[in-house]
Nucleic acid binder design. Structure first.
Lengths: 253, 253
DNA sequence: GAGTGGTCTAGACCACGTT
DNA sequence: ACGTGGTCTAGACCACTCA
């Protein structure tokens, strides 16, 4: 496997390398297998380590590789499907949802959140932190913003803070009737705290799912969930979801 | 604005730089404004150009900046909301959808597509290329795979190829009754052809939306649409969608 | 302590858009 | 022709995991 020469169209080296490695992953490696280290790989392909790393970053972004500092680079399993569009008629915290409440605080929200909630900028909101685990590994971290007005009967006494308080807030939320929800998905990079929870480095690519829950003609809750973009495929709709992967045979065109 | 020093927790330089630049974008720049070039910026912050570029890449990934070779780096407008979850009951190509057919070919599909279509590996499918433009710029490129069995009455004569052939295939598709659809979203990197159509470089981050259209108890069509991740926020659900941005203290919009 | 990936440097040259 | 961002190099050191 030396470097091949077909430079009539000067394709970047790292891009060509990405293709070569991608094909090698299909044909010569199996899931979980450890690749040679970056210095060896770079030497083998006759490129600088930085260039080799550019190719690896691409493949990691595409969910083909998993790299861990101090450990090595391994072949990643196919992305797991994570259902996002279900529970169309249920509040967060309803029986059997995929989330596990971790904490709850009462704060004055950031300006952007206050705007989306259509509430006063000074009005305090409950912030529930939740995490989602799938197939034994963390896939998402969520911040749930709930205006105090949405849970008027919440007693601050019996659950002052922590997970029990979070559960109490979610329980109160069920009393409202959910009228609908808006959802948006965009690319982002993990903040330091989310990154830690997702077992990634800060700045790791994440899919940010923003959901607005409507009740009483207003926004009763706002969820900002960040999913690991490298390991997750977000599925919407009724059934399990579509499966399209890379494979040994590509680009018949 | 020199480099500040708080290294008790050795935060990476590029990450700190990203934060500093992000705040500067909020307070000192307006949308469309041109930033100083990379060499000047690197010198101003006392870092190597590669480090400065790492920070810029983060900000571009987050949709805050737009960089174009030969031109410069500009402050990006907020991401545009692009509706993806509507048309729940309509086929692709139905009246007034957002897509513009560009081409159509008849090929034996890649293995991965054949699997998702639940059709024989050798069975030919129509591949319709479409593009989507929003607010005057291209936002998505799509490949629509339609098994020949889904459009049995298509006459190959009157529209041999090109956009007119694509329209003919889509027209035939409307005769089937749509029973449902599955949708999934994941992160990917643009292939060379898609990148060109999206006015980006190969490898640019894209949101890949895979939709399976069901009719007659089988998969009657499969859409693989790649959206520019830097400029698009995919919206689902009934109304316009949620808006959450970064922002200093105001939402002037 | 050995080995891994992550960060950073100071250069060089290239491809592209504008002038 | 010039200035821009994009690619690439050959090093160095750091942070982390694990035996």
């Amino acid at each position: 496997m030396g470097t091949t020469q077909l430079e009539s169209v000067p394709e970047p080296k790292y891009w060509h390398l990405r293709t070569v490695l991608s094909e090698a992953l299909d044909s010569e490696f199996s899931v979980g297998e450890i690749l040679p280290n970056e210095r060896d790989l770079a030497a083998r392909f006759g490129v600088a380590r930085a260039t080799l790393r550019q190719a690896l970053e691409q493949l990691e972004l595409e969910g083909r590789l998993q790299r861990r500092r101090g450990v090595g680079t391994t072949v990643a399993p196919p992305r797991m499907g994570v259902a996002v569009g279900t529970d169309q008629d249920a509040w967060p915290g309803a029986a059997g949802d995929a989330w596990q409440p971790a904490d709850c605080t009462l704060v004055v929200p950031p300006a952007a959140v206050a705007t989306a909630l259509e509430t006063g900028a000074e009005e305090p909101v409950h912030v529930v932190r939740r995490s989602r685990v799938s197939h034994g590994q963390p896939v998402a971290a969520e911040l749930l913003y709930i205006p105090a007005a949405s849970v008027p009967e919440l007693t601050a006494i019996d659950a002052p803070s922590g997970a029990s308080r979070a559960r109490a807030v979610l329980r109160e939320l069920q009393h409202l009737e959910l009228e609908g929800q808006d959802r948006a998905v965009e690319l982002g990079s993990a903040r330091a705290d989310d990154a830690k929870e997702l077992d990634r480095l800060p700045g790791a690519p994440v899919l940010v799912v923003t959901t607005r829950f409507l009740a009483d003609g207003r926004t009763a809750a706002l969820s900002v969930a960040t999913y690991r973009a490298d390991t997750c495929r977000l599925t919407f709709g009724d059934t399990g979801g579509v499966e399209i992967h890379h494979g040994p045979e590509r680009q018949a065109s």
